[in-house]
Design a protein around this nucleic acid. Structure first.
Lengths: 258, 258
DNA sequence: CGACGACTTGACATCGATCAAGCGAGGTGG
DNA sequence: CCACCTCGCTTGATCGATGTCAAGTCGTCG
């Protein structure tokens, strides 16, 4: 992941990371929510749009400076939530793929004071927080859909945290890759090839490892035939088996066509 | 902690762990909430009590079997939330001291399917979930108090998770001890001596370490003069310094008397 | 007294971090 | 267009941190 072939802003060179700017806003989010409800919620949500924004290079947004006053929804590309620790290390607590809501949750409405970094090539839609709350109070079906979506994220995070605290590096890394695949599945892609624009140093800050060790873990995973790499992307040779071995629980199931 | 001197059910021998059975129910919880609001909420809460229960030895409660259908509030003693991982290891995700609500949160209302273990000597009060929701909808001030209390817990957990993923064993352990002190502070104790009934094997399952290594870490902390031990209890020689070094954030402040 | 559980300690193996060097692709400036 | 720089990744050598296995101590409980 983040291999040199993809360039400095890896995502910018990949079609799925720059496709969105001309599409209808919130397409990714609406597609995600469709996995949790048959009700079409696009029009309601689109009435809350306050603006859009694209990032051609990695761009941090600082909570303190009010950069995150609007609700941010990823249209395309990726972002992550991070914090600097007392020893100077950066910890990345969560990541966001297309359709994810970065800085709002009805489950835990308190201020997460974490900052967010938008990866180069990402584009986002901004929503009005007050209006969203209002809509959700009116529209119980939409509220319940969003709640189930948030719930799935929360449970996936719980599963990941458990692994990152207790398991060795290889299993942590595999589980993170499975989470990436899960995140991609949310927007209808059930990709063999898992692609994200994250650099190994960023993976390290998610995993609680060093970048050097992440590199070695990937090498070992390739050498033992567990994954195949092509530039920025990764493929499991037998994903089912890995999921079984790790007791991995999927939270974003592909939905039968209605 | 959990040193042999305290016996098999460590907590049972310590006065603060067996004091409650004859006191008014929910005394610990009400005392905690007093840190977040000047409003006295004892009578309202006590109207929800469905029963009480004491544990003379370590007792697991299985979510699957419906053992946790009521809301469980610790009167005295300790408990923790745990799950068994795919490799057979046990992970302990959170712990509960006197006054804590074990299996309910308004912030994240979804089912945490974790099981709970009540340490020997613990006694708990059971509340009616439906009634609590009802009360909170009626009583905005109580709802806001409880919400702030839950918020403090959530933020403390976030801080702990970060440390447990990224930091080495010694710092993890220190932070866990500070969290124990924080939990004790919630019920008005601002103890020099931090006392919990947890065994080293349990600390290990919280920290993502082995019991043997926890033992060595404690030895090193004593040898370097950072902590002093007396049987089951621990005291920091300079807590302020440790809190500063770890950038530890307290969430349960001692409240000025009103 | 004997069994047991929790903790301790030592020897050793493995995992992961650190430091340092090198490589290849892009980007930049001459 | 080429020379050079930077960035992300790789690799090797080495060190420290942590896990594993095994033996031993010390209380408690029956």
């Amino acid at each position: 992941m983040g291999h040199a072939k993809a360039g400095k802003n890896g995502a910018a060179l990949h079609p799925e990371a720059v496709a969105a700017p001309e599409t209808v806003p919130l397409a990714s989010l609406v597609s995600r929510l469709g996995k949790f409800s048959a009700v079409e919620s696009g029009d309601t949500l689109r009435s809350l749009v306050r603006g859009r924004r694209g990032y051609d290079r990695d761009t941090p947004a600082w909570a303190e400076r009010g950069d995150l006053a609007s609700i941010v929804v990823i249209e395309s590309g990726w972002a992550y939530k991070f914090a600097i620790m007392h020893d100077g290390r950066r910890h990345i607590a969560d990541f966001f793929g297309p359709g994810a809501i970065c800085n709002w949750s009805r489950l835990s409405r308190f201020e997460e004071q974490d900052d967010i970094l938008f990866k180069g090539g990402a584009s986002v839609t901004l929503l009005e927080p007050g209006l969203l709350d209002e809509k959700l109070n009116e529209d119980a079906s939409l509220a319940s859909t969003i709640k189930r979506h948030e719930l799935a994220r929360a449970m996936r995070t719980t599963q990941r945290i458990r692994a990152f605290i207790s398991l060795p590096a290889m299993e942590r890394t595999l589980l993170l890759l499975l989470d990436f695949a899960d995140e991609l599945r949310t927007v209808g892609k059930a990709p063999d090839w898992i692609h994200t624009p994250f650099a190994q140093a960023e993976l390290a800050d998610m995993l609680g490892l060093t970048a050097v060790h992440v590199s070695r873990v990937f090498k070992k995973l390739v050498d033992t035939g567990i994954i195949v790499r092509d530039g920025n992307s990764v493929r499991f040779t037998d994903r089912r088996r890995i999921e079984r071995d790790l007791a991995y629980r999927r939270f974003f199931q592909a939905r039968r066509s209605p």
